[in-house]
Nucleic acid binder design. Sequence first.
DNA 1: TGGTCGATGGTCT
DNA 2: GACCATCGACCAT
Length: 279
Amino acid sequence: MPARGGAQLSRRLGQKKQRLLEAEQHQSPPDGAWTPSPREPSLGLPATPGPQRSIYFSSPQGRPARLGSEFFDQPAVSLARAFLGQVLVRQLDNGTELRGRIVETEAYLGPEDEAAHSRGGRQTPRNRSMFMEPGTLYVYLIYGMYFCMNVSSRGEGACVLLRALEPLGGLETMRQLRSTLRKGAAGRALRDRELCSGPSKLCQALAIDKSFDQRDLAKDKAVWLERGPPGPTEPAVVAAARVGIGHAGEWAHKPLRFYIQGSPWVSVVDRAAERDVQA
DNA sequence: TGGTCGATGGTCT
DNA sequence: GACCATCGACCAT
């Protein structure tokens, strides 16, 4: 593997350490920083089995909670930001609902974006869903063993990569899915922070694979997006360089990755970018 | 705790 | 045949 892979990971590990420290120090985060959302106690208890309340079609207020196609019909940068705070829901065949709040995304802008699979207008069988209507899932295999999940946005070949979730429900099922799919599955139990803190981790945790490619996030029965509960304050959003695209020249440095500042669920923290936070 | 590197196979040139 | 929007095991400190 290229040397940059190792260096990149090393940086990430260092940043993670800092983040853990910071998350533990911030019992009550300052305005604009991450605030915990309501969730089940994270005591490693299994998600409630059997029939579960579903807010598939309506919220407690009676208005539709599921985000429809109009939500996805916006430019990639705008959609990438709009995703933050919304809740991704995956319903398994047995009815179990896995839920996670989106805390980190990346925008891929289309033909002009040297880091996008659609760069130069390339359209192949693999990336066809990038060119389909906004809200279409683009799921592809990476490094021969992982999946990444994108959502098509407005704009030819433009999409948003989902990079990290704050797990909200079904954590034990996520842990099982992640452990089963990991190499050396007999290892220790994964911590909550390790469940969805990366684009392929979240695909494992939610059982998203190639069969989800070209599905419509606005209409699918097994996966959808719900409006996240509004917090007391608008979360501060960090715009940073995207991850793992060192080959893309100037495009590698553009601030097209977005994450909720201070969230301990983010995969990679960029301290330099955080000095220039846009709330 | 931090840094290195191998796994693995579809996709593209 | 090379590349790859990743991940985690392993080793040195």
